[in-house]
Amino acid sequence: MECQICHRDFQTNACCVNGHFVCDECHTRGMDAIVGVCLSNTSRDPLEVLEELMSQPFCHMHGPEHHTIVGAALLTAYRNAGGNVDLSDALDTMLLRGRQVPGGICGMWGSCGAAISAGIFVSIVTKSTPLESEAFGLANTMTSRALAKIGAVGGPRCCKRDSYLAILEAVQFTKEHLGVSMGETYPTCTRIAKNRQCIGNRCPFTPANVARRDAAQAVSPTK
């Protein structure tokens, strides 16, 4: 199809209900702002960093930008929590790799880009390559754990929900395997009205479900 913005032709798996198509490059235009936002953010909580990135003009309700901002938020919080990483270089690498993950692969490839982004985060901080042993295993295990959480909830897609799930799992993984304790809040969705495919009560982040979770933890707190 022809991109409605740059007018180049692309092989695509999806278009809008009116038959229009926008390519990934045009969809994510302005995403270089990630670097400045992250370098100036001091939070140890990747979900706080993620929310700032989601509020930027380049970020839509759904789209391949989430394949980059998940890893960028994790890298930023990791550095702020004491993790050993050159954040500027790491963010450049995250942008390069995240942009290579196509839109729509959650349904077409069986591998949500938010989970892959969490795996890219681990690959960067552990300096993984295809020839590594432990780092290779850690990066792939991170992706698989995030995918398991996303798969357990099911579809249809919600890039916000899947990003939250990937980051929550990455926080636990980073503490267990990398020895860095990042901050951890539990998000409440504020974008239900903007998502035509919202799964409602099946989503763990609806206000009602978060309230039930908080009430249960108040009665029987967990670590």
Score class of each variant (00 low, 15 high):
residue 182 M to N: 11
residue 160 K to R: 12
residue 124 I to W: 08
residue 153 V to P: 11
residue 173 F to R: 11
residue 104 G to L: 01
residue 98 G to F: 01
residue 174 T to M: 05
residue 114 A to P: 00
residue 107 G to D: 06
residue 152 A to Y: 07
residue 120 I to Q: 12
residue 121 F to V: 06
residue 189 C to A: 10
residue 176 E to A: 14
residue 186 Y to V: 14
residue 199 I to R: 11
residue 101 V to A: 01
residue 133 S to T: 15
residue 130 P to S: 09
residue 194 K to R: 14
residue 192 I to M: 15
residue 104 G to M: 04
residue 196 R to M: 11
residue 125 V to Y: 08
residue 176 E to F: 01
residue 161 R to N: 02
residue 168 L to V: 08
residue 158 C to D: 10
residue 202 R to M: 09
residue 174 T to C: 08
residue 135 A to G: 09
residue 176 E to I: 03
residue 177 H to K: 15
residue 156 P to T: 07
residue 192 I to R: 14
residue 159 C to V: 00
residue 131 L to F: 15
residue 125 V to S: 06
residue 154 G to R: 07
residue 119 G to Y: 09
residue 136 F to P: 03
residue 167 I to G: 00
residue 199 I to M: 14
residue 168 L to Y: 07
residue 106 C to E: 03
residue 183 G to E: 09
residue 148 A to C: 04
residue 194 K to F: 14
residue 103 G to C: 07
residue 202 R to P: 04
residue 150 I to A: 04
residue 126 T to E: 12
residue 167 I to H: 00
residue 193 A to S: 14
residue 196 R to G: 15
residue 149 K to Y: 07
residue 163 S to M: 01
residue 122 V to L: 07
residue 128 S to T: 14
residue 146 A to I: 07
residue 187 P to R: 08
residue 101 V to I: 15
residue 148 A to P: 00
residue 197 Q to G: 03
residue 114 A to E: 13
residue 117 S to D: 06
residue 105 I to M: 05
residue 165 L to N: 04
residue 161 R to T: 03
residue 132 E to C: 13
residue 191 R to D: 13
residue 145 R to S: 04
residue 172 Q to F: 01
residue 152 A to I: 00
residue 158 C to M: 09
residue 181 S to C: 11
residue 190 T to R: 15
residue 202 R to S: 08
residue 194 K to D: 15
residue 161 R to M: 05
residue 167 I to T: 01
residue 136 F to A: 05
residue 119 G to D: 13
residue 106 C to V: 07
residue 175 K to D: 12
residue 155 G to Y: 12
residue 107 G to E: 08
residue 132 E to I: 02
residue 167 I to M: 00
residue 151 G to A: 10
residue 98 G to R: 00
residue 113 G to E: 01
residue 181 S to F: 03
residue 100 Q to K: 11
residue 155 G to A: 11
residue 198 C to E: 05
